[in-house]
């Protein structure tokens, strides 16, 4: 016991030396941001949102952008509700708490569930990506087109099982639109994220599914991609038709937009600075290269554009989800 306490002297000296050494580097700036900024991601590490958030923020520490690094904080749970609720309830309003949003997920949840957030509780900063939903079936599926699938579903109501990344996420919205537009009874099976949803389709455990275009594109060897839920065809998959082209009223409401926002209540100067920096940062050559390499579709949008998009989405989703009461 005694010996141990005396050895500590040496350890203390060393530790204090290290502390001083590391503590002095990293000078302070006068204006925002003076220290690293936290970005709350409402999904677990390794998911598409988390991993893209890490790529698009990796250049933040450069002087021409924030001059400070952005640290990703994962707060997963309840399809994103835990993380977003936390931002509104406990996030600081000094500009050091940011959040990564997913549209239509958070808007749909704010309509269906009793959440602490809605589009007025967040201040958009910029959008970095847009990933449309696609209709996929297993490689050996008898369905070779949306028409095949619909013909089968009409004869066997409810027997077409379709997976998606969860409840009231983009895939679910696409499913609801598809079912409404065609008037066919289908069965939706929510999974815990896009990857297991994709897996169920690849393995033929379900008959079809909605999934991210980017993930379906990477797995295109093991799938048949039947249609895109967007207004125009996508550069990754120029041969895949949109639902609109087939005369099915499914628009771009389910497109998964990803971007960053502040909780409402942050000073205007801070929002202005961030709204100026982030779009430029997302367009950094190095960032774009990494995004391209990883097959993540980029769509950079300014604060004003995001604001308009949120409003439009909320209006539409309120109509689509009207029957579903708040719980």
């Amino acid at each position: 016991m005694k010996r141990n306490e005396s050895v500590l002297g040496v350890v203390v000296t060393l530790a204090v030396a290290m502390l001083v050494l590391f503590g002095t580097c990293g000078g302070a700036l006068a204006e925002y941001p003076e220290s690293p900024v936290s970005l709350v991601v409402a999904y677990s590490p390794g998911g598409a949102t988390d991993f893209q958030a890490r790529i698009v923020t990796m250049m933040a520490a450069k002087e021409e952008y924030l001059g400070q690094p952005i640290v990703i904080i994962n707060k997963p749970g309840a399809g994103g509700q835990v993380g977003w609720n936390w931002c509104v309830q406990k996030g600081t309003r000094d500009g050091y708490t940011m959040l990564a949003y997913n549209v239509p997920h958070f808007i749909a949840q704010s309509i269906v569930f009793r959440t602490k957030y809605n589009i007025r509780k967040f201040e958009p900063v910029a959008n970095w990506g847009a990933d449309p939903a696609v209709l996929i079936v297993p490689k050996d599926s008898p369905f070779n087109s949306v028409a095949d699938l619909l013909a089968y579903a009409r004869k066997n109501p409810g027997k077409v099982t379709m997976t998606g990344a969860g409840l009231y996420v983009g895939h679910h919205i696409a499913f609801l639109q598809f079912a409404k537009a065609t008037g066919v009874k289908l069965t939706y099976i929510p999974e815990k994220g896009g990857v297991p949803a994709m897996q169920s389709v690849v393995a033929g455990k379900v008959k079809a599914g909605f999934n991210n275009l980017s993930d379906a594109y990477r797995n295109r060897e093991r799938l048949k991609i039947l249609a895109v839920a967007d207004l125009q065809r996508h550069a990754f998959l120029p041969d895949v038709k949109t639902f609109k082209e087939m005369g099915i009223a499914v628009d771009d409401s389910s497109v998964n937009f990803r971007g960053v926002a502040f909780p409402a209540g942050v000073p205007q100067e801070v929002i202005a600075k961030a709204a100026d920096v982030f779009p430029r940062m997302f367009k950094d050559k190095k960032t774009l290269k990494k995004m391209k390499a990883s097959g993540s579709p980029v769509r950079v949008m300014s604060r004003e554009q995001v604001k308009a998009m949120w409003q439009e989405r909320e209006q539409y989703l309120k109509g689509l989800l009207k029957g579903l009461r708040k719980r």
Partner: peptide, 13 residues
């Protein structure tokens, strides 16, 4: 799952 992210950022699908 986290490792998958590490692969993807280097363009390894």
């Amino acid at each position: 799952a986290v490792l998958l992210g590490g692969l993807l950022i280097h363009g390894l699908f």
